[in-house]
């Protein structure tokens, strides 16, 4: 990676894909990883909430419905810190292109919607390396709803049921995701998100993503 200099100073690159649930992140991430590998680079993917130790504690606490807005936020922050230090930074040092399925922006969005102060959150994550590129898959809530209902079904937390928006599952999901989308929109400019219309075909989205990645990867 000669011409481009990474924003965090490590040899590798940090590429983030953000978007709400059902926005098509996973599909695009596997396509992107494959493409990067085809260009003879090492690529790895790290997903939100996958640290060895803490992810289990989060799942357990969610199942038992034990979390309040602050413990929710701090547990995710602990998961992130662990993954950053054990997985992401070592990979960046080794020169990998690290593709992240969600990053600190996900925490900002979810926690602000749960009533936290953005300045408190920015401090909480202030040690996170700046990504070289952030893609945001923009999908309107009506389409998200159809995708989610047609696949995994409505999840308690993805519907923001913990914050008591509505006793109606469908309605709660719609309001919660609407609020999340609004927070993403607010961050677009501040963090230079590359916003991509998530209603386009998988192939078209992929083409757009790699056209940008080519700017930071010598191919």
């Amino acid at each position: 990676m000669t011409a481009y200099k990474s924003k965090h100073g490590y040899e590798g690159l940090l590429v983030v894909i953000e978007g709400t649930d059902g926005s098509g992140k996973s599909t695009q991430i596997s396509k992107l990883k494959r493409w990067i590998e085809d260009q003879s680079y090492g690529a790895m993917v790290s997903e939100w909430k996958t640290s060895k130790f803490i992810a289990d504690a989060i799942n357990d606490a969610k199942e038992r419905n034990l979390l309040n807005a602050t413990t929710f936020s701090l547990l995710y922050a602990a998961d992130f810190a662990d993954r950053l230090e054990q997985v992401i930074i070592p990979a960046l040092k080794a020169g990998f292109v690290v593709i992240l399925d969600r990053y600190i922006y996900t925490a900002y969005v979810r926690d602000v919607v749960r009533g936290h102060d953005i300045e408190w959150l920015k401090n909480l994550y202030n040690y996170a390396p700046e990504p070289d590129m952030v893609f945001y898959l923009d999908v309107p809530v009506e389409i998200l709803l159809k995708r989610i209902i047609g696949t995994t079904g409505l999840d308690y937390w993805e519907s923001g049921r913990d914050i008591g928006l509505s006793s109606d599952f469908y309605e709660s999901f719609r309001i919660y995701q609407d609020k999340c989308i609004a927070e993403y929109q607010k961050m677009k400019q501040e963090y230079n998100f590359i916003s991509i219309d998530g209603t386009l075909s998988e192939k078209e989205i992929h083409k757009k993503i790699i056209s940008h990645v080519k700017d930071i990867l010598e191919v």
């Binding site: 060895k52 130790f53 034990l66 602050t70 413990t71 701090l74 547990l75 810190a81 662990d82 230090e85």
Partner: peptide, 25 residues
């Protein structure tokens, strides 16, 4: 996690903060 000496100071710090936030509320 302590038993296995697995976590960094920052991660530990955040886990203690979780514990504290839970007891606080």
């Amino acid at each position: 996690a302590k038993k296995k000496n697995l976590l960094s100071p920052r991660t530990f710090s955040l886990l203690h903060a979780v514990d504290f936030a839970d007891r606080l509320e």
